[in-house]
Amino acid sequence: ITGDVSAANKDAIRKQMDAAASKGDVETYRKLKAKLKGIR
């Protein structure tokens, strides 16, 4: 179950990262990237 949750989280975070990148929001992008590392 835990694996599914983190996989879903990663997917959601990647989508947020894409949105931040397209807006040029480097700050948010970095925060999300750090979150991704924390999940692993």
Rank of each mutant, 00 (worst) to 15 (best):
I1V: 11
I1K: 09
I1M: 11
I1L: 10
I1G: 11
I1Y: 13
I1R: 05
T2Y: 14
T2G: 12
T2N: 12
T2V: 12
T2I: 11
T2A: 09
T2W: 13
T2F: 10
T2L: 10
G3L: 13
G3H: 10
G3C: 13
G3V: 12
G3M: 12
G3N: 11
G3D: 10
G3I: 10
G3A: 10
G3K: 11
D4Q: 10
D4H: 13
D4R: 04
D4T: 11
D4F: 08
D4W: 04
D4V: 11
D4A: 11
V5L: 12
V5R: 09
V5T: 11
V5F: 10
V5G: 12
V5C: 13
S6F: 12
S6L: 12
S6G: 09
S6R: 08
S6M: 13
S6V: 12
S6T: 11
S6A: 07
S6N: 08
S6Q: 13
A7L: 12
A7T: 10
A7K: 11
A7H: 11
A7P: 10
A7R: 10
A8K: 11
A8F: 12
A8L: 12
A8M: 13
A8Y: 10
A8P: 08
A8D: 13
A8E: 10
A8H: 13
A8R: 07
A8S: 11
N9H: 13
N9L: 15
N9A: 13
N9S: 12
N9Q: 11
N9D: 14
N9M: 15
N9P: 06
N9F: 15
N9V: 15
N9E: 15
K10W: 15
K10M: 14
K10G: 08
K10S: 08
K10R: 14
K10F: 14
K10E: 15
D11W: 04
D11M: 08
D11R: 09
D11V: 06
D11Y: 03
D11F: 01
D11H: 07
D11S: 09
D11L: 08
D11A: 10
D11K: 08
A12N: 07
A12F: 08
A12M: 11
A12D: 13
A12C: 00
A12S: 10
A12P: 02
A12E: 14
A12K: 06
A12R: 06
I13P: 02
I13Q: 01
I13W: 04
I13E: 02
I13H: 00
I13N: 01
I13D: 02
I13L: 08
I13G: 00
I13F: 01
R14Q: 09
R14E: 07
R14M: 10
R14A: 04
R14W: 07
R14V: 06
R14L: 13
R14I: 12
R14T: 05
R14S: 06
K15R: 07
K15S: 06
K15W: 04
K15H: 05
K15N: 05
K15A: 12
K15T: 06
K15D: 05
K15Y: 05
Q16D: 06
Q16T: 01
Q16S: 04
Q16P: 02
Q16L: 13
Q16F: 05
Q16W: 08
Q16E: 10
Q16V: 02
Q16G: 04
Q16C: 03
Q16H: 04
M17C: 00
M17G: 01
M17E: 02
M17P: 00
M17K: 01
M17Y: 02
M17W: 01
M17I: 03
M17R: 00
M17H: 02
D18E: 14
D18T: 11
D18H: 13
D18S: 10
D18M: 14
D18N: 08
D18I: 15
D18A: 15
A19W: 08
A19Y: 11
A19Q: 08
A19I: 15
A19R: 06
A19M: 09
A19S: 07
A19E: 14
A19F: 07
A19H: 07
A20C: 00
A20Q: 02
A20S: 01
A20H: 01
A20E: 02
A20T: 00
A20R: 00
A20V: 02
A20Y: 01
A20I: 01
A20P: 00
A20F: 00
A21W: 15
A21E: 05
A21D: 03
A21Q: 08
A21T: 04
A21K: 13
S22F: 06
S22Y: 05
S22T: 06
S22V: 09
S22M: 13
S22Q: 13
S22N: 07
S22A: 14
K23I: 13
K23Y: 04
K23E: 08
K23M: 11
K23T: 08
K23F: 04
K23G: 04
K23H: 04
K23V: 10
K23D: 06
G24P: 00
G24Y: 02
G24D: 02
G24I: 03
G24R: 02
G24T: 01
G24E: 03
D25L: 03
D25K: 00
D25I: 00
D25Q: 01
D25H: 01
D25G: 00
D25W: 03
D25T: 00
V26S: 06
V26L: 14
V26A: 05
V26T: 07
V26W: 15
V26H: 11
V26Q: 06
E27R: 07
E27N: 04
E27W: 03
E27L: 05
E27Q: 05
E27S: 02
E27K: 06
E27Y: 03
E27F: 03
E27A: 05
E27M: 04
E27P: 02
E27T: 05
T28K: 06
T28W: 04
T28Y: 04
T28V: 05
T28A: 10
T28P: 00
T28Q: 06
T28G: 05
T28F: 04
T28I: 04
T28H: 04
Y29W: 06
Y29F: 05
Y29Q: 02
Y29E: 03
Y29T: 02
Y29K: 02
Y29I: 04
Y29G: 01
Y29S: 01
R30S: 04
R30Q: 12
R30W: 05
R30T: 07
R30N: 11
R30L: 14
R30V: 06
R30P: 01
R30F: 07
R30I: 09
K31S: 03
K31A: 06
K31Y: 05
K31T: 05
K31L: 05
K31R: 09
K31W: 04
K31N: 04
K31C: 11
K31M: 08
K31I: 06
K31P: 00
K31F: 04
K31H: 04
L32K: 01
L32P: 01
L32H: 01
L32D: 01
L32I: 02
L32S: 00
L32G: 01
L32F: 03
L32W: 02
L32M: 04
K33G: 04
K33I: 07
K33A: 12
K33T: 03
K33R: 07
K33Q: 12
K33V: 09
K33C: 14
K33W: 09
K33N: 05
K33Y: 11
K33F: 09
A34W: 04
A34H: 07
A34L: 08
A34S: 06
A34M: 08
A34T: 05
A34R: 10
A34F: 03
A34D: 12
A34I: 06
K35I: 15
K35E: 09
K35T: 09
K35A: 12
K35Y: 14
K35N: 03
K35W: 12
K35M: 15
K35D: 04
L36G: 01
L36P: 00
L36E: 02
L36I: 04
L36Y: 04
L36S: 01
L36C: 01
L36W: 03
L36N: 02
L36F: 02
L36T: 02
L36Q: 02
K37P: 04
K37I: 08
K37F: 05
K37L: 12
K37G: 06
G38T: 10
G38K: 13
G38W: 09
G38Y: 09
G38L: 11
G38V: 07
I39G: 06
I39Q: 07
I39N: 06
I39E: 08
I39Y: 07
I39V: 07
R40Q: 15
R40P: 09
R40W: 14
R40I: 14
R40G: 14
R40S: 14
R40V: 15
R40Y: 15
R40C: 15
